[in-house]
């Protein structure tokens, strides 16, 4: 019963991979994938904790999280299209007109 720790570790490692990906990658699509990894690993935490605590509500919450992640990605892809249209690149660092 107590061995949910390794499962949670997997989720946390995935989350860290996603977070690092967002911070170091320059291609917008890879950033988008990293964001997807992050939010879905958080959803994985829901499923794991739901399974080990014996309540189903966590799995229902994951469906909400997945739906939100999907709609977020849709908007992200739309922004990628706009980025490509104005600059012919999706390199995040190319978009730095506004500086402090």
């Amino acid at each position: 019963m107590e061995n949910y720790v390794p499962f949670l570790m997997v989720a946390f490692i995935l989350f860290a991979i996603g977070a690092i990906g967002v911070l170091v990658r320059r291609n917008f699509f890879v950033v988008l994938m990293s964001l997807e990894i992050m939010i879905n690993s958080a959803g994985l935490v829901f499923v794991i904790l739901s399974y080990f605590s014996g309540t189903v509500s966590g799995q229902v919450f994951f469906i909400f999280v997945a739906a939100v992640a999907a709609s977020e990605t849709a908007v992200g892809l739309a922004i990628a299209v706009l980025m490509y249209r104005v600059r012919h690149t999706v390199d995040v660092t190319e978009f730095s007109m506004m500086k402090r």
């Binding site: 996603g18 939010i39 958080a42 935490v45 794991i48 904790l49 739901s50 605590s53 966590g58 919450f61």
Partner: peptide, 17 residues
């Protein structure tokens, strides 16, 4: 924004657990 909301989901998941 998406970066921050992933942390939000993780926090809620831990509260739930």
């Amino acid at each position: 924004g998406s970066f921050a909301s992933s942390f939000l989901v993780l926090g809620i998941a831990l509260i739930y657990g």
